[in-house]
């Protein structure tokens, strides 16, 4: 694969190290204090493919939103490449160095695929519309997204839409790619295609990825490290290093290493799932 135009400096200066230090987040709607994240610490290395697994509603997204800059935190600090992103006093701001790919997709339906992909650089004024389009078309060619530049998102398949959204993020050469259960609503077959796509993008750019899911297979197949979270309030229960070499493809799924990691993962997650289930029963 030839050098991508959106590639950073080949990973000479590693970027995208996230340091999450004793972060807590309390939601306080109408005085009902809900502790969503409790004293959570993580050190994510630059260029790491980090996957967060945990039961539904455990506070994974809260953490992602804080990194993305959509809301603040109640205690602790989050640093990106050594710079303070937010703490209890400082509200973070969204920025194109940390781009989110949303659960239900957020391609603008009123713009064509090409207009969506060039949105970032054009809005920021870092490239003229023409330059951005040229760059986008080259990138789309490399990513297997040829021939849909002038279609609207509603005219392409859901798997294609998700790939376009990842391409839209990569156009900005972000330090961190934040993905919030991006493939949740997809069928198993489409998933295998978008997984391979995301792995290709990662292998080419080595951008730090912060990926939230509750699909264990997806977590191990994609991730370098899998962080298993407890049920709410969320903390890190277990960290698994996935020592399966890259580039990976679907054959990985049948390897003994994969099976071993999977069973380790299942037992950890199962405990939390049971706890979450019981907690749910109590609340009712």
């Amino acid at each position: 694969m030839s050098a991508a135009p959106f590639e950073s400096d080949g990973g000479k200066t590693p970027r995208g190290a996230i340091s999450i230090r004793a972060v807590s987040k309390v939601y306080d709607p109408e005085g009902a204090r809900v502790l969503a994240v409790d004293d959570c610490s993580m050190e994510i290395e630059a260029g790491e493919f980090c996957v967060i697994v945990g039961p539904s509603g455990c506070g994974k997204t809260t953490l992602l939103n804080a990194i993305a800059g959509f809301h603040g935190i109640s205690a602790g600090e989050i640093h990106l490449d050594g710079e303070l992103l937010c703490d209890s006093a400082r509200m973070p701001k969204p920025g194109s160095d940390r781009i989110v790919v949303f659960q239900n997709g957020a391609l603008f339906p009123w713009f064509t695929v090409l207009e969506n992909i060039t949105f970032g650089p054009v809005m920021q004024g870092v490239a003229s519309k023409k330059d951005a389009e040229e760059k986008a078309l080259i990138m789309m060619g490399q990513m297997g997204l040829k021939g849909i530049a002038h279609n609207y998102p509603s005219e392409i398949s859901s798997g294609m839409r998700r790939r376009v959204e990842i391409a839209r993020a990569m156009m900005n050469d972000p330090r961190v790619l934040l993905l919030d259960e991006p493939f949740r609503a997809m069928d198993a077959l489409t998933k295998t295609v978008v997984h391979q796509f995301l792995l290709d993008v990662y292998d080419r750019n080595k951008t730090t990825v912060f990926f939230i899911t509750h699909d264990l297979d997806e977590a191990i197949f994609l991730g370098s490290k899998v962080y298993i979270m407890t049920t709410r309030p969320a903390t890190i229960k277990k960290v698994l290093s996935v020592d399966i070499p890259r580039p990976r493809d679907f054959r990985v799924l049948a390897s003994p290493a994969y099976q071993r990691l999977r069973s380790e993962c299942i037992s950890a997650v199962h405990e939390e799932a049971v706890k979450a289930f019981k907690a749910g029963e109590r609340e009712m």
Binding site: G69, F119, M123
Partner: peptide, 19 residues
Amino acid sequence: AYFRAAASLGASDKQIFYK
């Protein structure tokens, strides 16, 4: 999500209005 996506992609308040 569209507002968040636009902010994340670096659009200003005014750009969010028009786009």
